[in-house]
Design a binder for these strands. Structure first.
Lengths: 361, 361
DNA sequence: CGACTCAATGTAAGCGCTTACATGAAATTT
DNA sequence: AAATTTCATGTAAGCGCTTACATTGAGTCG
């Protein structure tokens, strides 16, 4: 175990230990650490020496208790396994780092009750600002947050109606745009694979967007086929199987996110169903995966990194007491790739080889 | 803003406020919260009522200071953007949750100096146990950790030689296995795309594994072509271009991870180079991506979730003072899919459909 | 050379919580 | 009914740090 020194794992050295060793008061040590300008170079040197020798690290709890500042923000995301959150969070953290702020991350597994616990946990740990995903949660929490005076920013959605400041995009409108294109292409039998909508307002907004587009196009907004499923490639694949089992197969499968779409496409290939000749597929998010799979996925691009960075800036200014900034909308953008085409008028004929690669474009 | 009560954001209520309102001592309130069994149902009810009315949440710093327990572990990963870490971490966190432990996550961007800061930050924040990736870091840190008595577990590697307990796999041996297969298949012109090795002992162990296999096969271990590149699909693609520019093209490109491999494969397709007919490609990690891309990637499967879960169990037992468990090796496994084949002896004949592109050779 | 300034340092009062110990009432025993 | 045990609750001492305020001693000025 011990590699050299025989120093056992005594409890960590305290400010007082350092003070004693450097022959100064604890106040001086504290000043050395926090506002070195107030201390003579000589004493400072002596103190730092002691700090080094003892391997001193301040006790965060005590510091917070006394100073009432934590320089810590918190973020709660549904899951770390979803690349879109990971990516935005990385950017968020990088930006916070520039301001000397530490980020605490927790994940809720898409469960409201867990999220609530996490919010309390992060608050208790002194998070001075909070980043949350989506608006949908109990009002109690918002009043709790308000009571504790904790600035909270909602990401991944943009909705100026809501009282909380948000940064993100209009999920409904973005999906509506995509759906309009799909309809314009001639698709009428539309199927949807969505993430579970109950605890996920992004998912439900996206589904709504599709309905809206259908209504606007004069289609019956209830005529579409919807499957809700957990997040994961395999779930997407499985949902696709079920969809293809319907007596009336859809001509397009619109997925609530790219991962589900990737599963659908993989499954299509496995079943010998050609995309987009036999069935079109669309995604949402534009994660890296989207451009790597074959055929490359037509999807909605979301500026994740930018959202993370912007969220950090906004939250910092809120915590600094510069008032509530206005909610900020980020632009999404259709990424036309190879999985969306007009429905084939003819019955799809069983394909001969693995197809001759639909002439791109 | 305020939805009902006019309560402004006064500073958060304290234990004392609750005590006063419930007409008991602070001790009783504390007991209600921490060991409710010791309190009469009646008083408990009264206290809880007060807690609710006040929206009380304990001050973490104060609690830690007094109780000397934080129930918090820390983990530092190189980046959240890499799915393998995200996935293992998710499992790690889930397992810790069962023990009532909160996880604090930080990311170091593959930089040793940042990691060091993060270690100190997490320590100061009361992390009682630490999960770190890979062995490679300054000895000062290990003595710091030891001095503070913070159990530390190293993941993603297995090396019983090292003094720190680790859970993971033998990167070198795993890659050696794969490389042996590659060589057995007849490949002699081997190229490698690796992550940067300097701050990443997993990457360097993997490269070493390839050299080892070559040596064992009687090949000159310096005859291979190595490109180091940052993490990312596009970087993999770019490296692939450079490799294909060599006057003597390799017959196989072994990649340090699946993401680089995905980039290489995407690029091959873009260049009209067939995989595996013209060039084989291998990966490492077996992330979801590997089975979705076309052709599906031959790679080394690593049990990320299991590693995360196991890491949690081991670290918990270490923190509980149950002594140093032995390092634990997890099995990796070759996943044969479609990107690795014997090098074509004959000149690759231009195939009719997809391409006559690759002029080369 | 004494009155005054000012910078460096020390003193000590909390910050909000937990918990060992003290207290007193109710339950149990003798 | 007195003695004893038991259990709920209160009292108060810190936990390690920051910081307002007090102190000291050196420099400045007339």
């Amino acid at each position: 175990m011990g590699s050299g020194t025989t120093r056992s794992a005594t409890s960590a050295p305290t400010l007082e230990d350092v003070a004693e060793r450097a022959r100064v008061s604890t106040a001086t040590v504290s000043r050395c650490l926090n506002s070195p300008g107030q201390v003579t170079a000589a004493t400072r040197e002596r103190v730092m020496q002691a700090v080094r020798e003892l391997g001193y690290a301040p006790n965060f709890g005590a510091r917070v208790l006394a100073a009432k500042r934590t320089d810590t923000f918190g973020a709660i995301i549904p899951t770390m396994e979803n690349a879109i959150f990971a990516r935005a969070l990385q950017a968020f953290q990088e930006e916070l780092g520039k301001h000397g702020i530490t980020l605490l991350v927790a994940s809720s597994s898409y469960r409201l009750d867990i999220e609530e616990d996490q919010i309390r946990a992060l608050t208790a740990r002194g998070a001075e600002g909070l980043l949350l995903i989506g608006h949908h949660r109990s009002p109690d929490i918002y009043s709790f947050l308000q009571q504790h005076g904790i600035p909270t920013l909602i990401a991944w959605v943009y909705d100026p109606q809501e009282p909380q400041v948000s940064v993100g995009f209009d999920n409904r409108r973005a999906m509506e745009m995509l759906a309009s294109e799909v309809i314009a292409l001639g698709h009428r039998r539309i199927a949807v694979i969505s993430a579970e909508q109950s605890a996920n307002d992004r998912a439900s907004a996206r589904v709504e967007g599709i309905r809206l587009a259908m209504r606007k196009a004069g289609l019956d907004p209830d005529s579409y086929d919807l499957i809700e499923t957990p997040y994961g490639i395999d779930f997407g694949a499985e949902a696709f199987v079920r969809l293809m089992d319907r007596e009336q197969r859809p001509t397009v499968v619109m997925c609530g996110n790219d991962v589900l779409a990737a599963g659908a496409i993989r499954q299509a290939r496995a079943m010998g169903i050609r995309v987009p000749e036999d069935v079109s597929v669309t995604g949402f998010d534009d994660i890296e995966l989207a451009s790597v799979i074959v055929p490359a996925l037509t999807t909605v691009h979301v500026p994740h990194r930018e959202m993370g960075r912007e969220a950090a800036r906004m939250l910092v200014s809120m915590v600094r007491g510069e008032g509530q900034p206005a909610s900020r909308e980020l632009a999404t953008e259709l990424r036309w790739r190879d999985t969306l085409a007009a429905p084939s008028q003819t019955q799809p004929k069983p394909d001969t080889a693995v197809s001759k690669q639909h002439g791109f474009k």
